[in-house]
Design a binder for these strands. Structure first.
Lengths: 243, 243
DNA sequence: CTGGCGAAGATTGTCGACAATAGTAGCGAC
DNA sequence: GTCGCTACTATTGTCGACAATCTTCGCCAG
């Protein structure tokens, strides 16, 4: 895979690099600047980002492949709406791949890697002690990405990054369940311990348990949102925003 | 994910559909019409497929995202060369995802699905009895794809299709090892049996064993090719074609 | 003979304009 | 009042031309 992030795209001029409409548009979509299902008109975007329509068009092609938008022929692009079902599918795939990477990390981890992991764990413990759930949540992906780096399977990492950018916009937070952060920390500790012990089977199992709980939590979030919507209106059982 | 194949791309006119330069170029690359690392000049391709350079450019963007080609700024596109290491990574990811789908298939399989699977198994048995290794090899992906369809995880399927199109060009065939087809058939039978029994754990295990053997075979193929190359020249340990 | 320098050629990147297509509003008939 | 047709508008798809960039070849000095 060539670019797992805007990183590996060889150097280019910085001026072009920071203005690349593709990256800017991606960030805008991921951070929610556009509503799900909102139309993305090429001319408007070209104006907004001070680029030609050609560049925008290329960006849309890329984002389409990444699954962040949908394009219908002659009808333009809209930001893609992730259904609850698809969010679940994404999490399942993530589950499978993170387990693979966890195994690999357990085999390959060097002492420097372990130091980093333990440092992140310590920071997480601190956030939890301060009841800083938000801070804890931000550390979560850091730990996982550090594990990815140890495993060094570029193909799997690229897939995970792409999936992440899709699911991040899904409305279902997975940590906000009462009591979850404390349990999550214990699970993370078990994973790191298994990596430190260079025990791939244990690491796989620990990661499986961790992400299994995440899946349950996601299901819980979906259900509770469904229940909530069932009260107000009785439409669109699969979609999640009324457009 | 929107298109897992040229299928879901809404209907368009047939004339456009069959002439879509993106699909034609993809097929050409997959079927080996271009050498690995060969340069893909936009003007040439435009002429070759009777399309404008704009369409070719869009096609190249797509194929870049799919990982079939690499594009360097201002230096054009080449067909991507899959290193032995990357082929291995791809197979590992495939392994993880096929196991996920096998589990799901074991849970969801209906009787009609089982009929299809058994029909494919029967055809495989027939090919093997006739020592038709090539025919057997062609049935192999059919069986796996049928299992994918049962599992119905669109996200995972899309990833697998993309990976497949990359790895198919890798020079390492995985079935040509002596005695492998017979063993492969037994493994496939075990998988189908586990699906029929609606036993996800057994199905996961059977698929894991099957693909584990494929991984071993791939490693064997890579090693033997490395040995072979070591005899002739002592260059480019990671790449596989001398350009 | 080798190595740097410069010009020419080849190829990609970008822009503007035009054609093709989908969606919409207005008009008339029943 | 509603249905169907037509013309219009908005937007995408495609093309050709030009600018920017990289590569190659030839030249000259050392």
């Amino acid at each position: 895979m060539n670019n797992l992030a805007p990183s590996s795209k060889s150097i280019k001029q910085r001026s072009r690099l920071v203005n690349d409409p593709c990256d800017r548009l991606r960030d805008a979509i991921i951070s929610g600047d556009f509503q799900p299902n909102e139309r993305l008109v090429e001319a408007d975007l070209a104006l907004r980002y001070g680029a030609g329509r050609t560049a925008i068009r290329a960006a849309l092609a890329t984002l389409d492949q990444e699954g962040l938008i949908v394009r219908e022929p002659n009808r333009g692009a809209r930001v893609r709406l992730i259904s609850a079902r698809e969010a679940f599918e994404i999490e399942q795939v993530r589950n499978a791949l993170e387990r693979l990477l966890a195994r690999s990390a357990a085999v390959r981890a060097a002492s420097g890697d372990l130091d980093d992991l333990r440092a992140i764990l310590a920071a997480m413990t601190e956030r939890l002690r301060e009841s800083d759930s938000l801070g804890y949540m931000q550390l979560n992906p850091q730990l996982h990405r550090r594990i990815w780096r140890i495993s060094d399977n570029q193909v799997a990492i690229k897939v995970l990054v792409t999936l992440k950018s899709q699911s991040i916009r899904s409305q279902y937070g997975t940590i906000l369940r009462p009591g979850r952060p404390a349990q999550s920390l214990r699970e993370h500790e078990a994973i790191v311990a298994a990596i430190a012990a260079h025990d791939p089977d244990a690491c796989d199992a620990a990661m499986a348990e961790h992400l299994g709980h995440v899946l349950e939590t996601l299901q819980w979030a979906i259900d509770s949102q469904d229940r909530q919507r069932a009260w107000s209106s009785r439409e669109e059982p699969t979609l999640s925003a009324p457009a």
